[in-house]
Design a protein around this nucleic acid. Sequence first.
DNA 1: TAGTGGTCTAGACCACCGT
DNA 2: CGGTGGTCTAGACCACTAG
Lengths: 222, 222
Amino acid sequence: MHEEVLERIRERRWKPGDAIPREDELAREFGCARGTVNRALRALAEAGILDRRRRAGTRVALHPGGKATLDIPIIRREVEARGQTYSYALKIREDAVPPSAIREAMGLRRDDPTQRVLSVHSADGRPLAIEDRWINLAIVPMAAKADFTRISANEWLVTHASYTHGDIAFSAQAASDAEAALLHIDPCVPVFVIDRTTWYKADAVTTVRLTYAPGYRIHTRL
Amino acid sequence: MHEEVLERIRERRWKPGDAIPREDELAREFGCARGTVNRALRALAEAGILDRRRRAGTRVALHPGGKATLDIPIIRREVEARGQTYSYALKIREDAVPPSAIREAMGLRRDDPTQRVLSVHSADGRPLAIEDRWINLAIVPMAAKADFTRISANEWLVTHASYTHGDIAFSAQAASDAEAALLHIDPCVPVFVIDRTTWYKADAVTTVRLTYAPGYRIHTRL
DNA sequence: TAGTGGTCTAGACCACCGT
DNA sequence: CGGTGGTCTAGACCACTAG
């Protein structure tokens, strides 16, 4: 069902913008229950292949497939999955007042308790990524007692803190002097950067910048 | 249902690694049909929040929420959505033999008909992205007749060609001399790069490199 | 092999939103 | 307003796989 509809779209029998038959018509045509048709079409709509609206019916999306789902893996697992040996070094851990840009992004006041954790993840002994993180201790007080010399803040938070929503951004940056030193590269070299902030209801949980060594790419299938 | 399960995970009543009750038990607890439970749990599993296996039951994922879905928008729409004026310039269009790296990535022979289309997308008159594309004319012969001076190859292909699968990669690169000239920036400046190749069954449809002007970021919510 | 999720059915009522 | 998708039910059988 799902596959048959996809096939008709790919064969261009149903083209972008076209309306396709109603659920009950398709159910008769395929000789199945409407619920089955509904499930198949809803899945295709979630994938961005179809546009569905009550009363207006179902149409092939104008720009089908304009979505990609990325895995955001734990760095350790990513390294180990490539068969490399992972290592990790904690560089800075301090209770400190974040710079105003961070405070603003997290919606924090100057007197909110925050902890900064800066560490380097390495693959086969070579620096792979810098993790520069600020944790809101008011929301995750347990983090103050966690042993970030053994497990990365990245990994600790994934299993010990929950979030309701967040945002993530990918960009290209020139390595700063400090970043270059940690990654053993020259300053101003292009590096791939991921900025992520997560929230629990109205409160920021943590914000992190991951700065990857040159050559890093995020890859996914469509 | 969906929300209630999410809430229990976020409250850490069900923690990563924990097994949660069977579908029929939850159905009794919530006073609904098993089908309803199944739909809710299946949705959470697709989102990476739950791990489900027949016979083994349902568990909270060890690394919940390790997925992000990105919109891969048409550049024109992306610009217009920001309220900027979009413009587009075709720079190169030629039937040519792709370099061996491209041929290899697309699985083409030297005598397969291919067309190169290189263009620049601009926002408010400022170059935003270079689109450097190779099209497999054996699979999309209509592309030879398309008017790429008016509509970008990007946009034309989305509505006139289908694909069964593809892959996409994001990386940070140093701008080459040619790219720097087209984007009106200095060489070696960090630029965000998207490489994408799409396939129809066993044949490559097109491969494209989008090179974005400095400052570009991809952003999404989690 | 037994227990779990995966999928389907036939029917029902509801919510939304173009016309 | 009416027609469409959205969601639910109660039941059934199947497919997979852990023990």
